[in-house]
Design a protein around this nucleic acid. Sequence first.
DNA 1: GGCCTTATTATACAATTGTGTAATAAGGCC
DNA 2: GGCCTTATTACACAATTGTATAATAAGGCC
Lengths: 214, 214
Amino acid sequence: MTERRPFQRETEDRRRDDLIAAALDLLAEGGPQAATVRAISARAGVTAGLIRHYFASKDALMRAAFGVFMQRMTAQAAAALQGAPNDPAMRLARFIVASVSAPVVDALAVGLWAGFLHETRRDPEMRAVHAASYLGFRDQLQALIADLPQRSTALDARRAAIACNSIIDGLWMEGSLLPEAFAAGEVIEIALISAGAVLGVDLWAAHETDRNMR
Amino acid sequence: MTERRPFQRETEDRRRDDLIAAALDLLAEGGPQAATVRAISARAGVTAGLIRHYFASKDALMRAAFGVFMQRMTAQAAAALQGAPNDPAMRLARFIVASVSAPVVDALAVGLWAGFLHETRRDPEMRAVHAASYLGFRDQLQALIADLPQRSTALDARRAAIACNSIIDGLWMEGSLLPEAFAAGEVIEIALISAGAVLGVDLWAAHETDRNMR
DNA sequence: GGCCTTATTATACAATTGTGTAATAAGGCC
DNA sequence: GGCCTTATTACACAATTGTATAATAAGGCC
């Protein structure tokens, strides 16, 4: 009488990835309320029980998803330095550009970030992952700034890094929340000019030179 | 046999305010999951049913709470301009200082903001309130910048406002998330020096002068 | 001091949540 | 092609959610 739903067996990695992707999608779109086990499994094309077959609990799934999210957020900026020229200003410009470009900045990113915020505060493991990638990002930024041969002395390296990080974070927030309010490339331009002004270095020129060299 | 819990009658305003305050507290601390009708009413010292006596629904309560939150966030910056000197740089400095000071910036503010984000996206009424106060803030900022007699021409007024707003937003985020990472007044100093560098105006000096005049 | 309005509590209810367990069929292996 | 592992579905369950309704007592008014 009850005809069972047909299915295909998939590899463990594939199913985990699908479930994590579905969880991230739903959390980004509708917040924690929307990321229920049933919604996640439906989005992933499976039934609810399967989540507990691949993850010890829903929280474990969310932890895994958070790790993927954090990695996605920082990977782009780190990758931008690979194969970059030696000129410190160009390196910094590349780092900043990567930090305010897609997919770091898009309409769903800030939703995801907000959705994870409170879970991050609750769960010690997630808090550790978050702190590590956040401070890692700021340290990279500070190192790039310290390498600049001549920069404004209005702010020491630490405060300069905080200021640049704020510009990046603020533009990330605005660009993600109101993507339609910015023309193509405008966020990049504002980021480079602003950070350049704070540091007393023409990052926009460095960016242009770098781009023409490629 | 069942002895009813004793209670005192309160004014309508008092109860509404208490319920809104409880809702904001819980949302800030634990996100949407924590702000249940039972938790809110318990925090406010009443029973769950009373919420629906003062608000048409839980959503209506959250809408009211969001209005209070938005007002609290913008009121401080607006109030900073009342009785301010005429010098445009001093006025802008006051505005920025107020925007990165408590209670706008504190550990709970960003939690509240994150907690409201998705509800803001769902509810058209909340979205309207949010857009109005956000754009109102940026317009005020842009007007203050446009009043500056001589400023850097690297960015037009609109982009300069976006850049300054990003600095404020970014510092708000970092200062709220990691309040222990900053010394007293440090956020203010970074904000003024950074925004000043972007605009080519010494906002820090204006701030100091203004402070000594008072 | 008794009455009357209504603020407040108490209780019930259907819907939804995460989780636990049993049934089943998909597909690799021989 | 049949068997066997186990990935997958199906179902059940207690807890929690927002909401609806009825019972009750607080306290102002005469």
